[in-house]
Computed example of a mutant assay.
Amino acid sequence: MSAPALSRPSRVRPVPAVNVLVGVDPVHCRPARDAAGIAAHHRIRHVVFVEEQGVFAETDMDAHDARTDVIHVLALHAGRPAGAVRLYPTGPGEWLGDRLAVLPEFRTANLGAPLVRFAVGAAGARGARLMRAHVQVANERFFQRLGWHTDGAVETYVGHPHVPMCIEPVAPCPWLAGATPP
């Protein structure tokens, strides 16, 4: 009995390279510290709140943007500026987060949650015991899923309905903050 003939392997056609980030989160949130980062932060807010939503007529910038204790957060998606949020202290142990914005072309990249978590963590690392936000009504459920609580009745802010919400930031683990464990 003779051995069965082996079929000749078919020729494999090369496929074009695909950019895939395996095991790497393409979203990176950080405080905007240099002029380029601050400009990108403000450009994102302008696109969303002035051009897209019409919440503000000419600019969404206000006196808080000039404060030295304000943190302007920038979210990068695969290195490209894609989202922003602003936070600042409002009193002993209290912080306010506002101007959460994600560019339309990045809305399916799930940038909102990392931005909110980063803001809450940054406030907590600076001693916040309570963080507040005035959230557009359509985003109330999103914030609830992130652990926020509704903190009052719907109110009008810049002509649009918003819901006051709050969260108690969790203090970061000492080793995450750079402290050496005992």
Rank of each mutant, 00 (worst) to 15 (best):
3 A>C: 04
11 R>D: 14
42 H>C: 12
102 V>C: 12
36 A>T: 12
60 D>Y: 01
63 A>Y: 11
38 I>Y: 07
143 F>L: 14
107 R>L: 11
28 H>Q: 15
16 P>L: 15
52 E>W: 00
72 H>V: 02
5 A>L: 01
48 V>H: 12
26 P>M: 07
4 P>R: 12
77 H>T: 05
149 H>W: 13
98 D>C: 14
87 L>M: 06
13 R>A: 14
3 A>T: 05
155 E>G: 12
108 T>H: 12
117 R>Y: 02
64 H>T: 15
15 V>K: 15
125 A>E: 14
129 R>Y: 03
22 V>E: 13
117 R>I: 06
116 V>T: 15
117 R>N: 12
7 S>W: 04
120 V>T: 14
63 A>K: 10
113 A>L: 05
137 V>M: 13
55 V>R: 10
102 V>N: 06
137 V>S: 14
103 L>A: 00
145 R>L: 13
98 D>T: 15
175 W>Y: 13
131 M>F: 03
154 V>E: 11
58 E>S: 04
58 E>Y: 04
152 G>D: 02
152 G>H: 07
31 P>C: 10
65 D>W: 09
20 V>P: 02
71 I>S: 00
174 P>C: 04
130 L>C: 08
46 H>W: 07
160 H>I: 13
95 W>C: 02
72 H>Q: 10
28 H>D: 08
151 D>W: 12
13 R>C: 13
121 G>V: 08
135 V>F: 03
26 P>Q: 00
63 A>H: 13
121 G>D: 13
70 V>I: 15
135 V>K: 07
5 A>Q: 05
69 D>M: 06
106 F>S: 01
172 P>F: 13
153 A>C: 11
25 D>E: 11
73 V>D: 00
134 H>Q: 15
161 P>W: 11
161 P>R: 10
9 P>Y: 02
116 V>G: 04
106 F>P: 09
110 N>P: 03
130 L>A: 10
43 R>I: 03
163 V>H: 00
153 A>T: 07
159 G>V: 02
50 V>F: 10
37 G>F: 05
96 L>Y: 02
57 A>W: 03
139 N>L: 15
85 V>I: 05
9 P>L: 04
40 A>P: 09
114 P>M: 02
182 P>F: 00
157 Y>Q: 10
97 G>E: 04
31 P>A: 14
141 R>V: 11
93 G>C: 03
98 D>S: 15
93 G>T: 09
127 G>R: 06
68 T>H: 14
182 P>I: 05
107 R>T: 08
81 P>R: 08
169 P>M: 11
57 A>E: 13
30 R>A: 10
119 A>C: 08
176 L>A: 07
4 P>Y: 01
158 V>R: 15
25 D>L: 04
148 W>H: 10
37 G>H: 06
23 G>S: 14
69 D>F: 05
62 D>Y: 09
57 A>F: 02
3 A>Y: 00
94 E>N: 08
82 A>F: 01
155 E>N: 12
91 G>S: 00
3 A>N: 06
168 E>V: 10
